[in-house]
């Protein structure tokens, strides 16, 4: 199964020395085992923008989609046999010592992403698509539209190769959050924060500048789009 891992921690979280090396070691081990497919840290000092509305009616505001104590600091995409393996992988990551990792299964039928080299002179942005999914239970294969009926088809064509990959996620009711407290793994049901709007999908964009990323988000037109720069 494919899982989207959202790393969160408080902006003033203190990290033990050498944590960078441990994050690197985690990534190498998970990639070698075939678990980690893609992932990145977000530039937390680089700002966040919210885009609502479509095209010329789009409104851009500064700040993330929801005011939460813990901030989205990075993501990983993993392929695991089951939730227990995903929990074990998350629990081994240093993020769970100072913050938390939310594990969200990916909606059925989504293709695995291919890792690509960064294009010179380009920036990457993570676009989180967020909406109120309070009553949503589970997306089944038969619930998803056929390609011909996909309302995002036009946007996908228009965005082309500037969109590296993206997934729709299972709703927050299927989320699991992992923390480590005093050396033990603490697993809880649900997303990392009880906000009205929740992450429902994401797209990874590679563009020449922020204005281009915002234009792509404006053309998307559905729900709330939250844009953040990915660390190079």
């Amino acid at each position: 199964m494919l899982y989207f891992l959202t790393h969160v921690h408080t902006p003033d979280a203190t990290w033990e020395p050498g944590v960078e090396d441990r994050v690197e070691a985690w990534w190498s081990e998970m990639a070698q085992r075939g678990l980690a497919l893609d992932g990145a840290r977000l530039d937390m000092s680089g700002g966040a923008w919210c885009v609502r509305g479509k095209d010329k009616d789009a409104v851009v505001t500064d700040g993330p989609f929801a005011e939460t104590k813990e901030h989205v600091a990075g993501y990983d995409i993993i392929e695991a046999a089951d939730l227990d393996q995903a929990i074990a992988a998350a629990a081994a990551h240093p993020t769970t010592e100072a913050g938390a990792i939310e594990i969200r299964p990916v909606a059925p039928g989504m293709p695995a992403p291919e890792l690509t080299e960064a294009k010179p002179g380009h920036e990457r942005y993570l676009m989180l698509v967020c909406w109120d999914q309070h009553d949503d239970v589970e997306i089944r294969a038969e619930d998803l539209p056929d390609d011909g009926e996909d309302p995002m088809r036009g946007w996908l064509q228009q965005t082309g190769e500037r969109r590296l990959h993206g997934w729709q996620l299972q709703p927050p009711a299927l989320a699991t959050t992992v923390r480590r407290l005093d050396g033990t793994t603490v697993v809880t049901d649900g997303p990392f924060a009880e906000t009205k709007e929740q992450i429902g999908g994401y797209d990874l964009l590679e563009v020449s500048d922020r204005a281009e990323a915002i234009a792509i988000a404006a053309a998307h037109g559905l729900q709330t789009r939250d844009l953040r720069p990915v660390m190079g």
Binding site: L83, L174, A175, D189
Partner: peptide, 12 residues
């Protein structure tokens, strides 16, 4: 909801 989570989140 509990059964949907077991199935959809891959609880083994």
């Amino acid at each position: 909801r509990a059964r949907a989570k077991i199935r959809g989140a891959g609880i083994p």
